[in-house]
Design a protein around this nucleic acid. Structure first.
Length: 851
RNA sequence: GGGCCAUUAGCUCAGCUGGUUAGAGCACAGUCCUGAUAAGACUGGGGUCUGUGGUUCGAAUCCACAAUGGCCCA
């Protein structure tokens, strides 16, 4: 499965190493500007078939013998031209001969326009196949510049024979499938040392091999441009050709070219020795294994990853580096015998072992000292100096992390194959592949069952974030200002994980305010009141008599059901969004509607039921949220559970995920409450149109629902509606509601909600009482009083004020925790304020009542 | 050059097994509510659902092509 090949690999001249295909993938740049040049190769001889051909008027043979006939080839890498050893044509294409400045140029007829000579008459048309075997004179005869010309030994791709110098060297023309008629001239520069296609063509046609560039990317030999880096040599190569009349046209092209992901140097395709894993032999197994894996999003499976497996090529896994896992292949310096050693035991068993100590560090440089006797010839066996591609290490993780198969047999088997892995989409060629390839090679099966494949995070403009571009959102600024859990929640809920997403810190701030603060405030509401009332969870029976509580328990258990199922289906986004809308309803409906139940002074069943429901809900939420926002969830859990139950698991992360109680799910209540919410929303709209403040109670709301069934449902929930809309009565009708002097109406589809805006003296008085409560509360707050502090309230006003204070004394006192309502303003008060309420002047004063 | 994904309000996204009037949050303006609130409610402005064809009684939704962006490959 492992072999050494002489193959062309992308090579980084600065790092001095070849790159794997997944590394190359990291460094493509779209807007690379390179030379676009048309070069003339002088034709020396034509194949006999067309050489003898007579044609009236024009003879290509004569032009050849006059030294005026040229193949016109196109390239973007002038520095490879000294290594050119052939030209490739498309067999089926028509090639035209035209005259240009006294020379006769041959190139694909279809591409005349691009070469800038479309207006010339075509003197002759020849099929590419007819030109095969033509000979041409090299642009640079390697022997003149002290560069070796080699040729592959028949059947041994890794071995080359050096060719004798030849002052009259010619190269031959071949045909190849890869020749494009889209761009260029239909005649392709073949330099077997500098391209994979070129190298393979070289093997197939037994072409010469000229390698005039060293591993640092510098031109060797004695060319005028020797010693230059390849890219720097480009203009000088062109200048040299131009001087000799061999440069037809020179320009620039913008195209995609790979660069080193590590150091940004342009990559050079370079033939050199590399160790390969013959993964292509296991291609079918890898494809079969992939069918067992669940991919999210699903299209990756047969799309990007499936394509990658279909087009599998052998894994070039050796690296010319210092750091890394040493390649465990030794070979004999004398007879070239190879051995691959599988472990320490095998090393120790070698005859004539030198440079080995029992406790040695088996990395470079120490490992390089190990040698032993060749079992074939007795020569010295030395380690190949390369290290192993670190992607191989990453792919070996499932067993390497346990040092399996040397130990931890059971630990390995427990965790293999993995249930789930996650990485970004670029890793289809990286970690996803290295894991899958090695697992298939070693175990014949996949090593992961489920994958969430993440899309990339882009900046606010939709551009890829990159350090060089400076558009990176620093994670620390987000973590410092909004927190890790806010960032997590944003990532989970802002969009499906497989999508790319634009990101700016503002979005995380929004998440914090919208979701986390709502959650936290609900939690802290509970904590404040539970502390005031000394509520101890678990000691009181839960009796679900209140419709509101039944609704909350229904919603909660439905939520648990939904979230559990969504997470099982690898959809954290929808799960998170469900939690979000639940928390919003919890805060804006349940707590809002239940407020008075917590505030009232009697510790009755209703109050306990409210506490228990809210408590259970918050605890369950902390468990549901634990995988999403581990810090906030555990903080809630610590205070809600651990502080009252020392025997509870230490952390929410050690608690089992909640299981829904299906018996508590009442779909009818959920639906009915939704309707009640809708009616309230319309009622608020009607109220706000009437311009009567919500604080002012109104006599009646009139509802036109769609059916008698809906009317019944709303009747059951009418206390919630009355309270929410601050009206005294609810009435149902099947008549159209009319907007009028004492009626404000909101319409939505088949629903109509009208508010009767007649204000009786009694209602006005009650409204006044609410105004007074509201003012006192605001004063308490500004005075810096605690919620549970008791006060004495003093007041001053006309008879009407006196009447209100008398009629609503209980209500005002309970709401404001006033031990007394006293007429007259004493000198020593915490705060005095004067108001005009509905045209009536009132002066209020409060002072804290010391216990 | 090939492949995959996306494109819906100023922004971030729902809606995609075709079917009443395309929704939410943020942002903006005004009004209201509030002793849990960096919250909330109501109203308002803001949309040729990227474009062009096609299928259909009916298309944001299905099909084809194109444009733009992102990713991967060459």
């Amino acid at each position: 499965m492992i072999y050494q090949g002489y193959k062309v690999t992308p090579h980084c001249p600065r790092c001095g190493t070849s790159l794997s295909s997944h590394e190359v993938a990291l460094g493509y740049k779209d807007d690379t500007v390179d030379p676009s040049v048309y070069i003339k190769f002088q034709i020396k001889a034509l194949p006999a078939e067309i050489a003898g051909e007579k044609s009236p008027g024009f003879s290509l043979s004569k032009a050849v013998s006059d030294g005026k006939a040229y193949f016109l080839a196109w390239t973007t890498t002038p520095w490879t031209l000294p290594g050119n050893t052939s030209l490739a044509l498309a067999a089926d294409a028509d090639y035209a001969v035209i005259e240009y400045q006294g020379d006769f140029l041959v190139f694909a007829r279809a591409l005349m326009e691009q070469a800038g000579i479309g207006d010339r008459p075509v003197l002759k048309t020849i099929k590419g196949s007819q030109l095969t075997g033509s000979l041409y004179i090299p642009l640079f005869n390697p022997h003149e510049f002290n560069v070796e010309r080699k040729r592959a030994r028949e059947g041994q791709p890794g071995q080359f024979d050096i060719q004798e110098p030849d002052a009259h060297l010619t190269y031959k023309v071949i045909t190849a499938d890869i020749v494009s008629l889209e761009d260029g001239t239909g005649i392709v520069n073949i330099a077997p040392a500098f391209g994979e296609v070129d190298f393979l063509a070289g093997l197939e046609h037994n072409l010469d091999f000229v390698q005039q560039v060293d591993l640092s990317g510098n031109i060797t030999g004695t060319y005028p441009f020797s010693g230059k880096f390849v890219k720097a040599a480009d203009p000088e190569v062109l200048a040299d050709l131009d001087r000799r009349g061999l440069l037809h046209k020179s320009g620039k092209i913008t195209h995609t070219y790979p660069f080193c992901w590590r150091c940004d140097a342009p990559l050079v395709y370079y033939a050199k020795k590399t160790w390969y894993i013959r993964t292509s032999a296991k291609k079918d197994e890898m494809i079969a294994g992939n069918r067992q894996i669940n991919w999210y999003p699903e299209h990756i499976k047969e799309g990007r990853f499936g394509d990658w497996l279909q087009n599998n090529v052998d894994w070039a896994f050796s690296r010319e580096r210092y750091w890394g896992t040493p390649l465990n292949i030794w070979n004999c310096e004398n007879c070239n015998h190879f051995e691959c050693l599988g472990g320490l035991d095998e090393i120790k068993a070698r005859k004539g072992l030198k440079g080995f100590a029992g406790d040695m560090d088996l990395h470079r440089p120490y490992v390089d000292d190990i040698s032993y006797d060749c079992p074939e010839c007795g020569g010295k066996m030395a380690r190949q100096t390369e290290v192993i591609d670190c992607w191989f290490d990453s792919g070996a993780m499932p067993f390497a992390q346990w040092h399996y198969p040397f130990e931890n047999d059971s630990k390995f088997k427990e965790s293999f194959p993995a249930d789930y892995i996650s990485e970004a989409v670029d890793q289809t060629r990286g970690w996803f592949y290295s894991l899958h390839a090695i697992s298939t090679l070693v175990f014949g099966q996949p090593c992961y069952k489920n994958v969430i494949c993440l899309g990339h995070i882009l900046d606010a403009e939709g551009e890829k974030m990159s350090k060089t571009r400076g558009n990176v959102v620093d994670p620390w600024t987000v973590l410092d200002s909004s927190g890790a859990d806010a960032l997590r929640w944003y990532m989970f809920t802002s969009g499906p994980p497989g999508n790319v997403r634009r990101m700016s810190p503002d979005m995380v701030v929004e998440v914090m305010r919208n979701f986390l603060m709502t959650l936290w405030n609900t939690y802290s509401f509970f904590v404040i009141y539970a502390n005031i009332d000394n509520f101890i969870p678990g000691t009181q029976p839960v009796s679900l008599t209140s419709e509101l509580d039944k609704w909350l328990m229904s919603r909660l258990n439905q939520l648990v059901l939904d979230v559990d199922e969504l997470l099982a289906n690898y959809d954290p986004t929808t799960a998170g969004r469900k939690i979000e809308s639940f928390v919003s309803d919890l805060s804006n409906w349940y707590v809002r509607r239940s407020r008075r139940r917590f505030w009232k002074s009697q510790n009755d069943d209703d109050k306990l039921s409210a506490y228990n429901c809210l408590y259970q809900t918050l605890v369950t939420l902390s468990k549901l949220l634990a995988p999403f926002i581990p810090f906030v969830a555990d903080e809630m859990y610590q205070n809600l559970v651990r502080s009252v139950d020392g025997k509870a698991p230490e952390s929410v992360h050690l608690v089992s995920f909640p299981v829904a109680d299906r018996d508590l799910i009442n779909a009818v209540i959920i639906e009915d409450t939704e309707l009640a919410m809708k009616i309230c929303s319309m009622g608020r709209a009607a109220r706000s149109k009437s311009a009567v403040k919500v604080r002012q109670p109104l006599p009646r709301v009139v509802v036109k629902a769609r059916s008698a069934h809906e009317q019944e449902a709303l009747k059951n929930l009418c206390s919630q509606i009355l309270d929410e809309l601050n009206v005294k009565d609810i009435e149902f009708t099947s008549e159209e509601l009319k907007e009028g002097k004492a009626m404000s109406v909101a319409v939505d589809g088949d629903y109509q909600v009208g508010v009767v805006t007649e204000i009786t003296p009694e209602l006005l008085q009650e409204g006044l009482a609410r105004e007074i409560v509201r003012r006192v509360q605001t004063m308490r707050r500004s005075a810096g009083l605690e919620i549970a502090d008791h006060i004495t309230t003093n007041y001053l006003g006309n008879d009407q004020v006196d009447n209100v204070m008398a009629a609503f004394a209980d209500y005002i006192q309970q709401e404001t925790l006033s031990v007394a309502l006293l007429k007259g303003i004493p000198a020593e008060v915490a705060r005095t304020e004067k108001f005009k309420l509905s045209g009536i002047e009132v002066t209020l004063a409060i002072r804290k009542q010391e216990p």
